[in-house]
Simulated assay, not measured.
Amino acid sequence: MENIILTSIDIDSLEKIIKNSVAAAIASSIPETTSKDNEQTFSISELAEYLKVTKATIHAYKKRGVFKFYQTGRTVYFIKSEVDAALKIENNKK
């Protein structure tokens, strides 16, 4: 962050400095988009259908940390490539 020493400044210039500082702070806090944004996602029901297991099994896997999951509010979703990778790891453990 820049240190600015204000001596004599008009309101319009001060407003512009504040707006630019706030905009820069907000922009730096927004994560960059990744290729994961374009990947297929599953809800709990969709993942259960994909894996041919019950929703309770998916909840158990989620609780044990087998699958990485994302949550927006109450909506939980999984990224297909991460699920597939986790399944390969689990299968190699056996």
Rank of each mutant, 00 (worst) to 15 (best):
residue 56 A to K: 13
residue 13 S to L: 01
residue 31 P to D: 02
residue 30 I to N: 12
residue 70 Y to W: 04
residue 12 D to Q: 11
residue 80 K to A: 11
residue 39 E to L: 08
residue 32 E to Q: 13
residue 18 I to M: 02
residue 27 A to D: 02
residue 37 D to G: 08
residue 28 S to K: 15
residue 88 K to S: 00
residue 65 G to I: 01
residue 79 I to W: 00
residue 62 K to H: 00
residue 62 K to E: 00
residue 7 T to S: 04
residue 62 K to D: 00
residue 19 K to P: 06
residue 80 K to Y: 05
residue 94 K to Q: 03
residue 90 E to P: 06
residue 37 D to Y: 07
residue 69 F to E: 02
residue 62 K to N: 04
residue 54 T to V: 01
residue 70 Y to T: 10
residue 89 I to L: 11
residue 8 S to G: 09
residue 46 E to R: 01
residue 36 K to W: 12
residue 50 Y to P: 08
residue 40 Q to C: 04
residue 53 V to H: 06
residue 83 V to F: 05
residue 80 K to L: 15
residue 12 D to S: 09
residue 86 A to H: 05
residue 11 I to H: 12
residue 18 I to H: 00
residue 55 K to R: 07
residue 55 K to Y: 13
residue 18 I to N: 04
residue 73 G to E: 01
residue 56 A to W: 00
residue 34 T to N: 03
residue 32 E to N: 13
residue 25 A to V: 01
residue 32 E to L: 07
residue 24 A to K: 14
residue 50 Y to V: 05
residue 71 Q to L: 00
residue 90 E to W: 04
residue 51 L to I: 03
residue 62 K to T: 06
residue 18 I to E: 07
residue 76 V to I: 15
residue 30 I to G: 08
residue 45 S to H: 08
residue 54 T to M: 03
residue 7 T to G: 01
residue 38 N to W: 02
residue 9 I to M: 10
residue 66 V to K: 12
residue 61 Y to S: 02
residue 40 Q to E: 13
residue 22 V to T: 12
residue 79 I to D: 02
residue 56 A to I: 05
residue 88 K to G: 03
residue 17 I to E: 08
residue 53 V to G: 01
residue 73 G to S: 04
residue 3 N to I: 10
residue 93 K to C: 02
residue 66 V to T: 15
residue 4 I to M: 09
residue 22 V to A: 00
residue 6 L to T: 14
residue 45 S to I: 14
residue 39 E to D: 12
residue 84 D to N: 10
residue 21 S to W: 01
residue 4 I to W: 02
residue 77 Y to S: 04
residue 64 R to S: 09
residue 45 S to Q: 09
residue 32 E to A: 09
residue 8 S to N: 14
residue 65 G to A: 12
residue 54 T to A: 00
residue 66 V to I: 12
residue 41 T to V: 05
residue 46 E to H: 03
residue 20 N to Q: 09
residue 85 A to L: 07
residue 5 I to V: 07
residue 80 K to I: 03
residue 90 E to N: 06
residue 40 Q to I: 11
residue 93 K to S: 11
residue 11 I to V: 13
residue 60 A to H: 13
residue 15 E to I: 09
residue 33 T to A: 08
residue 91 N to K: 12
residue 4 I to S: 07
residue 53 V to M: 09
residue 52 K to S: 08
residue 13 S to V: 12
residue 3 N to W: 12
residue 23 A to C: 07
residue 81 S to T: 15
residue 39 E to S: 06
residue 9 I to V: 14
residue 52 K to H: 14
residue 75 T to F: 11
residue 25 A to D: 11
residue 33 T to E: 14
residue 84 D to T: 15
residue 86 A to T: 05
residue 63 K to V: 10
residue 67 F to D: 02
residue 41 T to W: 13
residue 91 N to S: 06
residue 73 G to K: 03
residue 46 E to P: 06
residue 92 N to H: 10
residue 13 S to I: 04
residue 50 Y to N: 02
residue 38 N to F: 06
residue 40 Q to Y: 11
residue 87 L to F: 03
residue 14 L to F: 01
residue 58 I to N: 03
residue 84 D to Q: 12
residue 65 G to C: 00
residue 25 A to P: 10
residue 35 S to M: 10
residue 92 N to A: 11
residue 15 E to W: 05
residue 29 S to M: 13
residue 93 K to H: 05
residue 57 T to M: 03
residue 90 E to S: 08
residue 55 K to V: 15
